[in-house]
Design a protein around this nucleic acid. Structure first.
Length: 283
DNA sequence: CATAGATCCTGTATGC
DNA sequence: TGCATACAGGATCTAT
């Protein structure tokens, strides 16, 4: 569920809390919450976390020594909450991480259990930084200053499939999910099933600019929340859902032309689009 | 190798 | 009310 803006809100909330703290205990209550790894979650005990990093929808906190990191992914319904130790356990609590903080702890709550935490080895990211091995197949995201946008445009146009599938392919460009894919396609007036190969470089560049713009606007609003499933580290919802132009707007008028926004089945989920602004192009 | 589709899970909404 | 079905913000595995 959470896409780049929502994950970034969580990162920014966690960073000042975890930076410099040492883990004193980890409790796992669910077999799927910790991903299989050569290093178990309990090896985090005694390690000091430096800061909170993010690539796309992945979060990680490098440990002092920069050899390993605590990796986190929220999946569809994950939450990372900083809560008082005395606060009752939330429903779907999967993992508790205790630090050298007598009052509060980090709680990983995840209804659908598609998210996970793990400890992983760090590897060189090619630009003087480090990335966990399990994240190294994920491309840089659109808010990453090191991202080579020209290269991304070329990679997108080389894909033999529909443009929305490519936007959702985290190995091409990361951070975009179903909401922001639909919003970016709406803004760029491109149909989801348009073959990536028929788009011009200019069109794809424009699409990426729209994706950046909508994600930055969402970030400024604390992300998109439809319910209590996505919240920040303090349990608060973001407000961007009221600014969506296409996603979830089936039957409502397109803010640009007034036609009814349509819903179509797409990859076992949904696409929302304006049938007038976003015409299907042919190969 | 690249791509399409199924699948992992729990909860809610909707229709009969 | 009960039951069945569809759907939900994602990533990964499998088959082709």
């Amino acid at each position: 569920m959470p896409e780049l803006p929502e994950v970034e809100v969580v990162r920014a909330g966690l960073d000042p809390y975890i930076a410099g703290r040492t883990i004193v205990a980890v409790q796992n209550f669910h077999p799927r919450a910790a991903r299989r790894s050569a290093i178990g979650l309990h090896d985090a005990v005694g390690r000091r976390m430096l800061w909170m990093s993010r690539r796309g929808k992945y979060l990680w906190a490098p440990f002092a020594g920069r050899q390993h990191a605590f990796v986190m992914h929220l999946g569809m319904s994950g939450q990372l909450l900083i809560q008082q130790r005395t606060q009752p356990n939330p429903k779907h609590l999967r993992i508790t991480v205790e630090f050298d903080d007598v009052d509060r702890q980090l709680r990983f709550v995840d209804q659908r259990t598609f998210g996970h935490l793990m400890i992983d080895e760090l590897t060189d990211d090619g630009h003087g930084g480090a990335v966990p091995i399990c994240v190294s197949h994920i491309s840089r995201d659109l808010l990453d200053p090191v991202l080579d946008r020209t290269q991304v445009v070329a990679r997108i146009r080389a894909k033999a499939t529909g443009i929305k599938r490519v936007l959702l392919d985290q190995s091409v460009v990361s951070g975009i999910g179903n909401i922001y894919a639909d919003e970016a396609l709406w803004a760029a007036r491109i149909h989801a099933e348009t073959p990536a190969t028929v788009l011009t470089s200019r069109q794809v560049a424009k699409l990426l600019e729209e994706a950046i713009a909508v994600m930055q606007r969402a970030l400024a609003q604390g992300g998109t929340s439809f319910d209590e499933l996505y919240v920040n580290v303090n349990g608060q919802s973001g407000y961007f859902s009221r600014s969506l132009n296409a996603y979830g707007q089936a039957g409502k008028p397109c803010p640009r032309c007034g036609s009814d926004i349509q819903r179509a089945k797409f990859m076992n989920r949904s696409s929302f689009y304006c049938p007038r602004c976003q015409k299907q192009a042919r190969a």
